[in-house]
Design a protein around this nucleic acid. Sequence first.
DNA 1: TACCACGGTTTCATTATTTGAAACCAAGTC
DNA 2: GACTTGGTTTCAAATAATGAAACCGTGGTA
Lengths: 270, 270
Amino acid sequence: MVAGGHADGTVGKALEVLDLVASHGRPLRFSDLLVRSDFPKATLYRLLQTLTHQGMLDHDPETGNYAAGLRLVRLAHAAWAHSSLAPIARPFLDDLAARTGETIHLAQLDQGQVLYVDKRNAAQPVEMFAQAGKVGPAYCTGVGKAMLAWLAPEALETALARQSFHRHTAQTLDNRETLLAELAAIRARGHAWDREEHEPGIICCAVPILSGSGRVLGGLSVTSTTTRTTLEALGALTPMIGEIAAKIAAEAESWRFPDEAAVRDGAGPR
Amino acid sequence: MVAGGHADGTVGKALEVLDLVASHGRPLRFSDLLVRSDFPKATLYRLLQTLTHQGMLDHDPETGNYAAGLRLVRLAHAAWAHSSLAPIARPFLDDLAARTGETIHLAQLDQGQVLYVDKRNAAQPVEMFAQAGKVGPAYCTGVGKAMLAWLAPEALETALARQSFHRHTAQTLDNRETLLAELAAIRARGHAWDREEHEPGIICCAVPILSGSGRVLGGLSVTSTTTRTTLEALGALTPMIGEIAAKIAAEAESWRFPDEAAVRDGAGPR
DNA sequence: TACCACGGTTTCATTATTTGAAACCAAGTC
DNA sequence: GACTTGGTTTCAAATAATGAAACCGTGGTA
């Protein structure tokens, strides 16, 4: 059961359907969706029709499958440029990746989940959308916990409400209480560990990216494996990670969009 | 005036607003949007509120700016994986890039426009969303014309209706008639040129990616500059480009999503 | 061939949501 | 202190969404 918020109006319902389609790895048929949603047949049908007609979904008449539509890719381009730290952080991530030689994650919170907005992979070249745009749980990842730890009380509350705790590994903190204790420890320490809480063998050290006023802008982490390094060794990098996070925060705050710029006539993009 | 289709219902309107925000390079205030849309004040206000509440838009209370929201990035990840050729084409693009040493574009048509879904840059490393997700005009780019040329008559008609011709350079084919003639020539020749029609100094050679039944799946191009090469030299690559396009098409058709796969309990991603 | 079951699509009277003119409020400005 | 400008709220009227049920086309099966 998706921990959804109270759908506001028709738009909310439509977006719920959109999520339903998007959150499955593979395209789905009408009947699949009908089972998974609790909309009545006709309603679901019309919502799908509208979304398809709008290009938010793709409908293959051959197979009858609905898939997330390309219009989303176009919209996301704007979202990524407007609302994410990624465009700003890029050079800093490059720097951090070069200096540590490890995998770097830049993430932001979205609906209580960790949304990775950029990444530097130790060896392989960048993998575009296949990497950025991915979501992960907040309660058992380094960046997730780092961000949660500095959230304001009410924000934390709503975020916690959206967690669906699951014991991924033996180390996973799979309940509210232990997580809260951990968050307090993280605040005290200044950074978060991932002690193989999400995937066995994967460890990381993460810090929040905070605005001048203390608001959580995002999270930054350096990830490695237990075969390659240890928590202690990763911990030694903390000052460097923190320094980069601070630089990103500073840049984010000073950043203003290239001002006004003669407003083209309303002719859509370009 | 956005060449939009007749908005279906509230959802259509909401998405129109979303586009409005997304299609501008920088975040906009309520009043900016009010001027640009022809929704009445109260209606626009409520749509913005809904979209914001849903995470499709971001509203900065400080500045009052609306920007495309992060939820879109998450959705786009699915769209990219579901509906684009990119995940399939990746190795082929790598190959083509390595063999030609030039810039490679993989594009698909979205609402009559060229949507770039992947790219290989001659020298620089990949630039993620900053590149993929970009849109460009169809009538004056290589990939655009290559795709238009093989479109079925009605599809072509709707696509043409969405073009807003503009003379980017002296070579731009900026009207329906010359474009139609060019498309016929392209069909006859088997590939499309961009003779500095979009940007001065930029030339390219593009082919369509066609399904077995002749449906246009996308477009593939090799781009260079007049200072570095000539149309003739680019043309010599045509067989290679065509071969790669065919491989991508074949792969796309044989591709089936990792079947059924035990449906996890509805616990969202991962 | 007839019968049924399975997706998927359409109808239509009922219901709930959206609509938007206008009023309102909060900050600036002159 | 009157007057913008920019944003938010109200409320009756207009409109769009709803969903049970009927319908259709296809494929399987007796």
